[in-house]
Design a protein around this nucleic acid. Structure first.
Lengths: 248, 248
DNA sequence: CGCGTAATTGAGGGAATTCAAATAATGTGG
DNA sequence: CCACATTATTTGAATTCCCTCAATTACGCG
């Protein structure tokens, strides 16, 4: 296993792949310089736990690359994913010393972390950071509320279609695919993680994936590689407006 | 029906009942004075719609008194409540001109509204407001995530118990009842609204209310007046830790 | 190639829904 | 103040969708 110090793939914020989407997006050069003083990189392997709910948390940070999940667990083991953390997403809450959720790396993960106390100092004195963090938090709140509709009111088939369409759309944004035509992507989640996201069992997820495949809504190569021949069709299956029902 | 102008029950922020909990909580006197220039009160009767999803929204604001709901609706009519707005809660999103959800007054409602553009100006130049709004948004995000666990993983009985315990706890905060001993409160929601909150049908809500009553977890006088003889018992029924599992 | 993990598929059961009807609460006009 | 209409709630019966338990198949890796 590699030493953590050697894992800082880049140190210069200006060249950071999430420079313009993360919490630092609005920062000027001098503000970035101050951030660089309190930042450090951490790398996790797929499956590793970043932090356990209830543990002391002395940092906040951004996902630089890879995917992590935010989950809540009941005493009897029932698990609900409450967030999917993608590159540029923010982890942790200023003003809170304890993690409220389990954070687990789903793929290999690189995080840009800031020591919590100095970061809170910076928030108080750097409006650019506070404003960006507010904007990101409002976006997350919208996403959470969108997900409440999925969890509370959609059928298993619609839930799967909803998840697939979210992943497909995000992937299109990242890889700048055209708006129409078939889309192809790799599922970053196991069937079990999908189930935890959707409030289903992994068996139901598997069955509905098979059903969507049988009905030609998706094609599967292997278990994880998905092709969506017709995004509108998938959106219909998700129970969404064909116009996307986008908030922004 | 009364004229809206006559409904401003109070104009002075210093005497406002939500002065220390709303978005203006951290404001100094001079900041309040500027807020007073762009604020106006609006009153709604129980059942009235404050704004429809998709409509243009030229204001943001705080609930001063009464209760409102935030709901999302699918084309076929399935409805999911995504927020319950209590006194001091914030409505609207800075930077967004269109309402993302339906907002409906559940009881008679008084709102303190700010014209959106001047308010956005103020956010940019008044850190006290931006910081408070960030804090409130983070709290709402936590509440939404807590609710995702309820929606995704809890049984109907647990869902009802969860809702009752939330309302009971909030009521205790407002009315400063002791932490232990029986608690009494009025349900501010119809069975249908409860169902929309919990992702259930109103029949299931009714059945589970009856079951909790039969089992002595709650007592009912009329349909809306609830007594909880033992809060710990209710929390157990909700599937929560008896220590409350509180985040803050 | 064999082992462990991930995923699929099947059968049966159960929790919540749907459809339907009865009852209680609330409001309205005479 | 009461008969009536309307809405809210409860309760029942049948159905359905998803879960649980169980067995099998595919995949990835030493």
């Amino acid at each position: 296993m590699l030493n953590e110090r050697s894992l800082a793939v880049h140190n210069d914020c200006e060249e950071c792949p999430i420079r313009h989407r993360a919490v630092c997006a609005r920062c000027e050069t001098d503000e970035l310089e101050r951030l660089e003083e309190i930042k450090y990189y951490r790398k996790f392997e797929a499956g590793q736990t970043v932090i356990w709910s209830g543990d002391r948390m002395d940092f906040v940070g951004s996902v630089v690359s890879g995917i992590a999940t935010l989950t809540q667990t009941m005493e009897d083991g029932r698990t609900q994913m409450v967030g999917l953390l993608l590159p540029s997403d923010f982890v942790g809450r200023p003003g809170r010393a304890t993690a409220a959720y389990d954070v687990v790396a789903t793929t290999d993960l690189v995080m840009c972390c800031f020591r919590r106390n100095p970061f809170e100092e910076m928030i108080a004195h750097t409006p650019h950071i506070a404003q960006r963090l507010l904007e990101m938090t409002l976006d997350e709140l919208d996403a959470a509320r969108e997900w409440m509709l999925v969890l509370g009111r959609k059928t298993a088939r619609e839930k799967i279609a909803s998840l697939l369409s979210i992943i497909a759309r995000r992937d299109a944004t990242l890889n700048m695919q055209g708006a129409d035509g078939p889309r192809t992507f790799d599922l970053p989640l196991t069937r079990e993680a999908m189930a935890d996201y959707l409030g289903l069992t992994l068996e139901t997820v598997s069955r509905q994936m098979s059903a969507l495949k049988k009905d030609g809504v998706i094609h599967l190569e292997g278990k994880r590689h998905v092709t969506v021949p017709d995004m509108d069709r998938l959106m219909e299956e998700a129970g969404d407006d064909s116009d996307g029902g986008m908030l922004v």
